[in-house]
C-alpha cells in the first residue's frame, strides 16, 4: 500500500512526454499545477478549474483526462502526454498541421486540449465523420471559432 507519513508530501514518479520525472509534491497538488508550475509545461491551460472546459486536457495512460480534476499523487506510476510531447521538435503532427491549414486557431487558449482530444479521437477511430468529431470534442469548449474550422481540420486529417 502506498502511504505517506505525517508530512503532506509525496515522492511522485511519473513518465511525462517519454521522460521519467521524480518530484516531491504536496498531496493536495493538482496534476495541472504539477505540470505547469513544477515542470513548466505551460501548454496545458487552466480555464474553468472544474472539469467543464477541457483546456487542461492531457493524455493519462492513453486516455484524455482533465488535469484539473486529478491530484498529482493519483498519477503516480502513470504515463502522461501533454501538448509539448506531441510533436517532435519542429515536426508537427498531421493534425497540428491541419489546424494551421484550416485556420482553426483564434485566441489559441483551447487549442492544446482540443488537439489532444482530436488526436485521441483519431487514435480510436481512423476517419471520424463530423458528428463523431463533434461528440469527441464535446468536452473542449472554444469561445472564439464557432468550432467549424476546428472540425474541418480534424475531418481533413482523417481524409489523408
Amino acid at each position: 500500500m502506498l502511504y505517506i507519513e505525517d508530512i503532506e508530501y509525496f515522492d511522485l514518479v511519473v513518465i511525462v512526454n517519454g521522460c521519467e520525472v521524480c518530484r516531491r509534491v504536496p498531496t493536495h497538488q493538482r496534476l495541472l499545477d504539477f505540470l505547469r508550475d513544477d515542470l513548466r509545461l505551460t501548454g496545458t491551460k487552466e480555464v474553468c478549474g472544474e472539469g467543464e472546459c477541457g483546456a487542461c486536457t492531457v493524455i493519462l495512460n492513453g486516455e484524455t483526462v482533465n488535469s484539473c480534476l486529478i491530484l498529482a499523487v493519483e498519477a503516480h506510476g502513470s504515463e502522461i502526454m501533454t501538448i509539448e510531447g506531441l510533436s517532435h521538435g519542429q515536426n508537427l503532427t498531421d493534425l497540428q498541421q491541419a489546424f494551421i491549414e484550416k485556420h482553426s486557431v483564434q485566441c489559441g487558449y483551447c487549442i492544446p486540449g482540443m488537439v489532444l482530444s482530436a488526436e485521441q479521437l483519431e487514435h480510436e477511430q481512423a476517419q471520424p465523420d463530423r458528428e463523431i468529431i463533434k461528440q469527441g470534442l464535446a468536452g473542449n469548449i472554444c469561445r472564439c471559432t464557432g468550432y467549424h474550422k476546428i472540425i474541418d481540420a480534424v475531418e481533413q486529417k482523417g481524409d489523408r
Binding site: G51, V65, N66
Partner: peptide
C-alpha cells in the same frame, strides 16, 4: 454522460 474526459475517470 458528460464528455470523454469525464467518462474516462
Amino acid at each position: 454522460f458528460a464528455a470523454t474526459q469525464i467518462r474516462n475517470r
